[in-house]
Computed example of a mutant assay.
Amino acid sequence: MILEMLSKRIGPDEITYNSLISCLCRDGMVDEAIELLVDMGRSRIQPTVVSYNIVLLGLCKVHRIDDAIEVLAAVVEKGCRPNETSFD
């Protein structure tokens, strides 16, 4: 979808990325969601705590707790402050 938007010269924003990441996580496609999160970081749109929380929830839903802990550590390392939702 991102490629289709770009081909039409429509730049995705934070809401677009977060929506797609959420849909991927909901469907159990967490690795693809993480790839999109990385792609988001490469663009001019930096992931926010909301973006990371979506991925953290997705990882927890598929019982990848160790991966969730790694993502949380990366979030803190990047200077993004976790919030209450990050720990729910």
Rank of each mutant, 00 (worst) to 15 (best):
M1C: 09
E4N: 01
L6V: 12
S7H: 08
K8G: 02
R9G: 11
G11T: 15
G11A: 15
G11K: 09
D13G: 10
E14T: 14
I15T: 05
Y17I: 06
N18C: 04
L20K: 05
I21R: 04
I21V: 13
S22W: 05
L24E: 08
R26G: 01
D27A: 12
D27S: 07
G28M: 08
G28A: 02
M29C: 14
V30D: 08
D31S: 15
D31L: 14
E32G: 11
I34C: 14
L37T: 04
L37C: 08
L37A: 01
V38C: 05
D39H: 01
G41T: 03
I45C: 08
I45P: 01
P47K: 07
P47A: 10
T48N: 03
T48L: 07
V49Y: 07
V50L: 14
V50G: 01
Y52N: 00
V55W: 12
V55S: 13
L56G: 05
L57S: 11
G58N: 09
C60K: 10
K61G: 13
K61L: 14
R64Q: 15
R64L: 14
D67C: 05
D67F: 05
I69G: 00
E70L: 11
E70W: 00
V71Y: 14
V71D: 02
L72W: 03
A74P: 02
V75F: 03
V75D: 04
V76W: 02
E77L: 05
P82S: 06
P82Q: 06
N83Q: 08
S86D: 07
